[in-house]
């Protein structure tokens, strides 16, 4: 090979860049996040009533679009009524509806958002809920 060392250095850089993720992860396990749904508000509910506004699959994949639509509907149109797919009515409010049950932002929202590198801009306007200083029982 002509100019062998230049080409080999180039190929080494190429290989290093493209296998970067393998080296970074070598010997590491990547635990799957488990968002906690054991807040006092959820525990208070009967087993059958422990339902989010929409079904689990929809919430997992599409909650961000739902919340975005909620914002537009509540703040731009002044309409705070949401009827879900089963016909049940909810009040559109992040603080009073979503966060009423999911009061554990650190153990719920942040788990998956940090895992997938998502930085939602909810908290640009909303106040981040206080959690930890209240002790164990809350």
């Amino acid at each position: 090979m002509y100019d062998a060392w230049k080409i080999l250095v180039g190929l080494a850089i190429f290989l290093g860049l493209f296998t970067f993720a393998f080296w970074m992860n070598a010997g590491k396990a990547a635990p799957i996040p488990e968002p906690k749904i054991d807040t006092p508000e959820i525990k208070k509910m009967a087993e059958a009533e422990r339902k989010c506004v929409e079904d689990k699959h929809f919430m997992r994949t599409t909650h961000m679009q739902l919340i975005n639509d909620w914002r537009d509907q509540a703040l731009r149109d002044g309409d705070r009524d949401y009827i879900n797919k089963k016909g049940k009515k909810y009040v559109i409010s992040l603080q009073n509806t979503c966060m009423k049950c999911h009061s554990n932002k650190k153990e719920f929202c942040d788990k998956c958002h940090n895992y997938t590198g998502v930085a939602p801009y909810c908290w640009d306007c909303h106040i981040v809920p206080e959690e930890e200083p209240k002790g164990n029982e809350s």
């Binding site: 970074m24 992860n25 961000m64 679009q65 940090n114 590198g117 998502v118 930085a119």
Partner: peptide, 26 residues
């Protein structure tokens, strides 16, 4: 961000810059 855990800061930063107009969610 899908191949590294934890996600390095520069990838989160790139994500923010790329989506800086905050149009819709995601």
């Amino acid at each position: 961000r899908l191949f590294l855990e934890p996600v390095p800061f520069f990838i989160n930063g790139l994500d923010l810059v790329d989506g800086m107009f905050q149009i819709g969610a995601p």
